[in-house]
Amino acid sequence: MEDTSSAPIRAADADRDRVATAVQTAGSEGRLTLDEVEERLGRVYAARFTDELAALTADLPRPAPPSPGFPLGREALRRHPALRVHLAVVVAIAVLVIARWAVLGAGFFWPVFPVFWLGVSLLVHARVRSVRERVRTAVPY
């Protein structure tokens, strides 16, 4: 039986594009000369296996991981429809419990507790989405 653990893995177009972007970025930062960029790009698009691609960026610094930032911004809401739905549900329930409190005339503002936990659930949902997105978009090269 043949040992496939050391067999080279074929490179996909997405792999080549990712490495080409890294080489172009290094050239725009001044880390590579124009001749080096042209030579490496030629080798990127001629590469058949992923280990050939990895060798083309081995001497370049790895990009810094994106800073987490606030997980519930406009950009996150635009990218993730589930967060928009969750936000709409939180707002609707908050309005309902506050309206009920106002109509019943209760003295103590009890809606603060469910609204707080609804907000916490929304923030946790947004944070989990942002962590999963960063893991999914991590560049292996």
Rank of each mutant, 00 (worst) to 15 (best):
E36F: 12
L104K: 02
R134E: 09
D15W: 04
A11W: 03
L72H: 10
L41C: 07
V95C: 12
W117E: 01
V90F: 09
I93Y: 06
G73Q: 06
T33D: 08
A14Q: 11
A64S: 03
D17A: 12
T57V: 15
S28F: 14
A12E: 12
W110H: 03
A102G: 05
V90C: 14
A46H: 14
A64K: 13
L96F: 04
I9P: 02
A14Y: 04
G107P: 00
A14C: 02
S5D: 15
E75I: 08
L34Y: 04
G69M: 02
V95R: 05
G107C: 01
L72R: 06
Y45C: 05
A14S: 10
R132G: 06
V37H: 03
T50V: 15
M1V: 13
L41G: 08
G30H: 06
H86A: 15
Y141G: 13
R48Y: 05
A126E: 00
V112G: 11
P65M: 11
A12L: 15
V139P: 00
V91T: 15
A47R: 11
A47C: 13
D3G: 05
G107A: 08
D51R: 08
V19L: 01
T21W: 01
L77E: 04
P63F: 05
P65F: 02
T50L: 10
T137V: 11
V128R: 12
I93S: 08
L83T: 07
P8V: 11
A14M: 15
F113K: 09
A12C: 09
R127I: 01
S121R: 11
M1K: 00
F49L: 03
V139M: 11
L34S: 11
R132H: 10
A54L: 10
G30N: 08
M1W: 07
R136M: 01
M1G: 13
R100S: 12
P111C: 01
S130C: 04
V89Y: 03
R43F: 00
W117H: 08
V44E: 00
R16L: 05
L87T: 13
P114M: 06
S6E: 07
A20E: 03
S5Y: 10
T57I: 11
V44D: 02
D17P: 00
F116K: 03
A82N: 02
V139N: 13
L53G: 09
T21I: 00
A94H: 04
T57W: 01
A82H: 05
G105F: 00
A82R: 07
A7T: 11
V97W: 01
A99K: 07
S28G: 03
L122D: 00
V19E: 05
S130D: 02
D3S: 08
D59K: 07
D15P: 01
F113D: 06
P71H: 13
A22E: 09
R62G: 05
L87V: 08
A55H: 12
T50Q: 15
V124Y: 02
D13Y: 04
S28L: 10
L83K: 02
V89E: 13
A11G: 09
G107F: 00
L87Y: 05
E2L: 11
D3L: 15
R62P: 01
R100W: 08
R132L: 14
E75D: 15
A82G: 07
G73H: 06
R16C: 04
R10A: 14
L118K: 00
L118V: 02
E133N: 01
A76H: 06
R16P: 00
E38R: 12
A92S: 14
R48C: 04
P63L: 04
D35F: 09
E2W: 05
D17M: 11
T25H: 02
G42D: 08
V23I: 13
